[in-house]
């Protein structure tokens, strides 16, 4: 896995964000095993306590679950996953809209541009679009 860590925001939140994206996009399937806390710390060169914290919070959010000594797995609860997707979409939209608003572009002008850009992006990596 690849993750560009931002030095100015908490690493554990960046990890949670990363997992949300992976889960929402289906790259991490329901019930799929996720790396152990030490494995992940090792691949990303980050503090194991930080990974531990991210996992604990994700567990509290119901994103992952752990049975006894088994490796943690992605939740099988579809409502949770749906919620995460909505949340991510909402975040992206808010970000997008606030940018558009600062540029003071009317919404009607944005629609065609949005569609065009979306198509272009999909054209670049056709199979990426299929997965959605």
């Amino acid at each position: 896995m690849k993750l560009n860590i931002d030095n100015r925001s908490p690493v554990y939140l960046q990890l949670i964000e990363y997992f949300k994206e992976q889960i929402a996009s289906g790259k991490l399937a329901m019930g799929e095993e996720i790396p152990s806390r030490r494995e992940l710390a090792r691949t990303l060169n980050i503090n194991p306590n930080t990974v531990q914290r991210a996992y604990r919070e994700m567990e509290e959010m119901g994103l992952i679950y752990t049975d006894g000594n088994m490796p943690s797995k992605v939740t099988r609860d579809e409502t949770v996953i749906k919620k995460v997707r909505e949340e991510l979409v909402q975040d992206a939209l808010e970000h997008f809209v606030s940018t558009i608003k600062t540029l003071q572009i009317p919404l009607e002008d944005v629609y065609p541009l949005l569609e065009k850009t979306y198509r272009e992006k999909n054209g670049d990596k056709a199979d990426g679009g299929e997965a959605k």
Partner: peptide, 14 residues
């Protein structure tokens, strides 16, 4: 550092 990142949005270098 994790706390400073969370509460003040600063890196160690900052």
């Amino acid at each position: 550092p994790e706390k400073i990142r969370e509460e003040e949005g600063k890196s160690i270098i900052d």
